[in-house]
Amino acid sequence: MKGAEVIQKLDEYLTGKELIVSSNGNVSRQVYTLLPQPQVYLRGSMGLPVSIGLGLALSQPKKKVIVITGDGNFLMGLSSIATVGSVQPPNLRILVIDNETYATTGCQETVSSALNYVEMVKGMGIKSVVSIDLTKEKEIPSDLFDKFVIKEELQVLHIRVEIDDINLENIPWHPIEIKENFLNR
């Protein structure tokens, strides 16, 4: 199972009202291509998707905010998980698509393979954490996203995946357009 397939599957569970923040590089390109538009597609801002998602969740407490991030991005901003654990916004959820590499820059390895995400994230005060390895799976479990999208609870879902072999084109919108389209949605 590859990251893009996981994002494609998530689409089946979305109502269209969720607000999504996606990390720079391949993840944003996949979210732009596969999920309802417009969302907050990050270009730079490496390490900041969780922080931006936290601010958005506080600003829009009635909307569900989903941060979709690669492992490199998540780990660069790891201390922002501690802040989220302290604030406990019930409308925020974080999906970590973990291929154990900085895939966008040519699949250089990250430190992700050494880590236990459940212990790490629970240790930062987030009670609802699921970690699943789909690298060997051909099908995504049918109930994987049920609770993640619907339940009003701060959650982290960590999914180990295979590296995507297709690199998508860059998002055609200028970041100012990304912002304006999101604000005017």
Binding site: V40, L54, G55, L58, S79, A82, T83
Partner: peptide
């Protein structure tokens, strides 16, 4: 004014920018 102590200053930039994208100002 709600105050969030951030672990790093760049994290705080992210929080305030996300807050703006949701229609509020910090």
């Amino acid at each position: 004014i709600y105050y969030i102590p951030s672990t790093r200053e760049d994290e705080a930039v992210g929080i305030i920018c996300g807050y703006f994208l949701g229609g509020q100002v910090g």
